[in-house]
């Protein structure tokens, strides 16, 4: 089992290299630094000198892959590829357009992102599984039918409307919690409640319906019939037999996103003005700050790969067939 996990871990390396190459191609080959400079400086009054200056300030004035002018190993290292792409493996992302160090920024913004993402993740999972179990327990009845219709209807509403509507209803009409921002310490909960609730409700429909399908598929299997033939009650069958088996497919979809919780939620954070990584990303996109977007792409991939690895580990915990082989 250990070799299995190590192998899966090593598997991540070529993938990260692949991601790195793709981002490099996307940011430096499809568009040259000149294009980026022209875009940042505004297309109108751009002079070749201004472009050169812009590039020099950001270290984009080097050759892409091979610096023939440099000496020795610097031929390979004094290049954009080495500086801007390979350095990401050391988590050195350079500076953003406004001159701040990106890694420091990421570190300080992680906290607020997690403060929302973790409760959303846990509550959301709990709510969806509970709701799905309820529907499965009453399957074939009108409660089940109504629940499924509700799920489909909830899935059909854009998350934008959940946020806009929720903010309007709870903060503006009922005046229950502040509409946006983030306080310090315990005071933060006041600000966090609304975004958390909205995110959980927004994701409930799709998740609950998906889990319901998994539960029903599982409960049509032979071993469930065996469990019933033992005389177990429906509840015992559902919780002791179906749920445990259904956790395997559910885990595949769920564990992989855990590391990505660090990235926070783009929409929620920007709507509620929460200074997390999600709003950082959106601001960077709007300001066309390529260095930040590049950094976030890389970090996102790293976290996803960690998620894949965690999925492998969680499989071994849940599924004896993998643990013992």
């Amino acid at each position: 089992m250990l070799t299995y996990l190590i192998r899966r871990f090593l598997y991540a390396i070529p993938i990260l290299i692949g991601v790195n190459l793709i981002t490099f191609a996307l940011f430096f080959i499809v568009n040259t630094p000149d294009d980026m400079a022209r875009m940042q400086l505004g297309a109108k009054r751009v002079t070749p000198e201004a472009i050169e200056k812009w590039k020099a300030e950001r270290g984009y004035d080097k050759p892409l892959l091979w610096n023939a002018a440099a000496a020795g190993t610097a031929k390979a290292t004094d290049t954009i590829f080495f500086d801007k792409s390979l350095s990401m493996f050391a988590f050195e992302f350079g500076r953003s357009e406004d001159g701040r160090d990106i890694m420091t920024e990421i570190r300080t913004r992680m906290g607020p992102s997690l403060a929302i993402a973790i409760p959303v993740f846990i509550l959301g999972l709990w709510a969806a599984i509970t709701f799905a179990l309820l529907l499965v327990f009453f399957r074939g009845t009108y409660l089940d039918l109504g629940g499924v219709v509700l799920c489909v209807a909830m899935m059909s509403i854009s998350s934008l409307f959940y946020i806009i509507g929720g903010q309007w209803l709870i903060s503006k009409v009922w005046n229950l919690v502040p509409i946006s921002g983030l306080g310090a310490g315990l005071d933060a909960t006041r600000f966090l409640i609304l975004p958390v609730i909205i995110s959980v409700i927004g994701g409930l429909g799709g998740a609950a319906r998906w889990y319901r399908t998994i539960f029903i598929e599982e409960s049509n299997r032979d071993y469930v019939r065996t469990a019933r033939a033992k005389g177990l009650s429906e509840l015992a069958v559902l919780f002791r037999h179906v749920l445990k088996n259904a956790m395997i497919p559910i885990l595949t979809g769920v564990v992989v996103v855990i590391p990505s919780l660090f990235l926070g939620s783009l929409l929620i954070e920007s709507f509620f003005s929460i200074p997390g990584l999600g709003s950082y990303t959106i601001d960077a996109i709007n300001a066309q700050d390529f260095a930040v977007v590049r950094a976030m792409v890389f970090i996102g991939s790293v976290l996803y790969i960690v998620g894949l690895w965690l999925t492998d580990i969680s499989y071994t915990l849940v599924d004896p067939r993998i643990r013992l082989n």
């Binding site: 977007v293 976030m296 792409v297 991939s301 996803y304």
Partner: peptide, 12 residues
Amino acid sequence: LNSIPGVLLIAA
């Protein structure tokens, strides 16, 4: 391709 978060890949 899958490991790059979708939104970020689209944004980039």
